[in-house]
């Protein structure tokens, strides 16, 4: 299945937007870009690597459809069902803001009609590739913290007695134990 590469899964969705979306979506995405709480909420969904939304008033090359289209893609680790469940549970108001002006959007809750809607508007990738297919988002973010602590100890280790080093090593492991 081309939507999966190792532990990474792709979603690609394109939905037609009601005329009202012309005015609503610029505001919704302006808030998304400028109010840090929006992206922090996505950060809480700790299994998303990268996601993007695009409003398409006309397709490149000058093709102008009757409606605007909302493009969404996500790269996440885990199962498709879990991903949509989490979106529905954690950020339902943002889902309403983003897809509320798309034709046929049933709302994020209950989740089954929402899943059917995403499925109906999804395109399956023909080729999907990740530079690190075995790594999850949580692991990548945790690794950065671990390496910072490790390098800090490495930089100080030369000047320490073995006993001092042992204490600092234990302290370092303690500080990053949640990330190991």
């Amino acid at each position: 299945m081309a939507n999966v590469e190792g532990r990474a899964t792709a979603i690609t969705v394109l939905t037609p937007v009601k005329p009202l979306g012309r005015f609503v979506l610029p505001i919704v995405f302006w808030i998304g870009r400028h109010v840090s709480a929006t992206l922090k909420k996505l950060q809480m969904l700790s299994f998303i690597h990268f996601a993007r939304w695009i409003v398409i008033p006309s397709f490149p090359g000058g093709e102008k459809p009757r409606y605007r289209y909302l493009f969404f893609e996500s790269n996440f680790n885990g199962l498709w069902d879990q991903y949509i469940d989490a979106f529905s549970e954690v950020v339902p108001e943002r889902m309403r803001g983003i897809w509320g002006t798309s034709y046929g959007f049933p709302g994020p809750i209950p989740v089954e009609p929402f899943k059917r809607y995403i499925r109906a508007n999804e395109y399956v990738a023909n080729h999907y590739w990740s530079a690190y297919p075995g790594a999850t988002t949580t692991e990548i973010i945790a690794s950065q913290r671990v390496v910072a602590a490790l390098e800090d100890l490495r930089n100080r280790a030369d000047g320490m007695s073995p006993e001092e080093f042992h204490r600092e090593y234990q302290r370092m492991l303690w500080s990053v134990q949640g990330d190991l």
């Binding site: 998303i48 990268f50 996601a51 993007r52 695009i54 790594a135 692991e139 990548i140 950065q144």
Partner: peptide, 20 residues
């Protein structure tokens, strides 16, 4: 993009691989 989210946009591919 209207909105782009990168969970670890400060890390290059090389850094991600090395850190992991």
């Amino acid at each position: 993009a209207a909105l782009f989210f990168a969970a670890y946009g400060d890390q290059t591919v090389g850094e991600v691989k090395a850190n992991v």
